[in-house]
Write a protein that binds this DNA or RNA. Structure first.
Lengths: 195, 195
DNA sequence: GTCTTTCCGTAACGACCACTACAGAAAGAA
DNA sequence: TTCTTTCTGTAGTGGTCGTTACGGAAAGAC
């Protein structure tokens, strides 16, 4: 049975994880040092290592938690009756999310991935992005009947994935919520509707 | 008079700068260490500091050289007779450039900028990107008569800037030249042509 | 040749990196 | 109370960071 034995933890693990998420989100994987992290989390290095393993494991847990909160947004948007409406919802939902003042701007998986020297972390984040792109492609392919003939769902998914990445980068550069919605609206004009 | 006195430099400064450019392009500013740079440049740290100042000055020179070779591409594209053709040319030219096998993928200014802890470097690169965006907005505004009424040139420029950033990120993720051209073609469908 | 100037390689500087050995503190169990 | 277990803070570990002091080497000037 999981009775608590020994000295109890003096900090809130979830709260510490939240603060680590925020720092990784702002600074990326490598430029957020253990000293920075422990300062933000309000704990000392041994507590971090005891509770989370090492820096890489902490980052993995952060990304897992991020995906857990981000994927419902994506799933809900993609559940729209048509692929066009699904993409429209997704882009505008992300415009809101990327500029939500309650957390750092942009997408953690997109912005924390660029310029990461650690090959494992790099590959892991790339796989996450590829998975999102595949989910978009699947949603488009499932509604292929409404598309202009000759439209390749994977090609179109690549375009919208690029738009999402561009929105994230713009958000990190300080773009406003209105500007991101304008990007989303412009991107939807590129939808290849069957005439 | 600039007569060469003392022991002559034993390496080609331009070639060393080229190799530094390649490394910064692949790894970004902070994750490319002096040890990495000197190894790639084939010189020892004191030679680097004597020839280029410090890491930051070397990076500035790299970015300046990069912009010097990149801006003609942009200027030529934007010189097209219509704004629409200008953007079309620009996007497809960048699709070729970002996947040119003779140098690292994507755009140095875009990819080296994300997750930079150094505030000065970050601000400097952001200013470069804003300048490109402004150039696009100016070209669009100059051809406003051909646009759909109610189109905001700055808004449209933000969209195409986001597409360019997305293309760069996709290129870094290993997207092929064909995929990038497909993104460019899709993005041009969003052009707000006057009916 | 000798002097001056500039570059080169060696070998280090202090500061920071991710990470941890260790001892004391705080809890339940006996 | 005493023992065991687990967490805590202090104070480090070896390694790497950007940067440089220093002495020898290679050139023109005299």
């Amino acid at each position: 049975m999981p009775v608590t034995r020994g000295r109890p933890r003096a900090f809130d693990r979830d709260e510490a994880l939240r603060r680590a998420t925020e720092l990784f989100w702002e600074r990326g994987y490598e430029t957020a040092s253990i000293a920075d992290l422990t300062a933000a989390m309000g704990i000392r290095p041994p507590s971090l290592y005891a509770a989370f393993g090492d820096k890489r494991a902490l980052f993995d847990e952060v990304v897992a938690g991020y995906k857990a909160t981000a994927s419902p947004v994506m799933e809900e948007a993609l559940a729209a009756p048509t692929a066009r409406e699904a993409l429209d919802r997704l882009l505008h939902a992300l415009a809101d999310d990327y500029t939500d003042p309650s957390h750092p701007p942009g997408c953690l998986v997109i912005s924390a991935a660029v310029n990461v020297a650690d090959g494992d972390v790099r590959a892991s984040l790339r796989a996450d992005r590829e998975a999102s792109k595949a989910a978009i492609a699947d949603r488009i392919a499932a509604d292929a009947g409404r598309l202009d003939e000759g439209t390749d769902p994977k090609e179109l998914a690549t375009f919208y994935a690029a738009v999402v990445q561009g929105m994230s980068t713009q958000a990190c550069d300080g773009a406003s919520r209105e500007e991101l919605h304008a990007i989303a609206t412009s991107a939807m004009r590129a939808w290849p509707a069957r005439p």
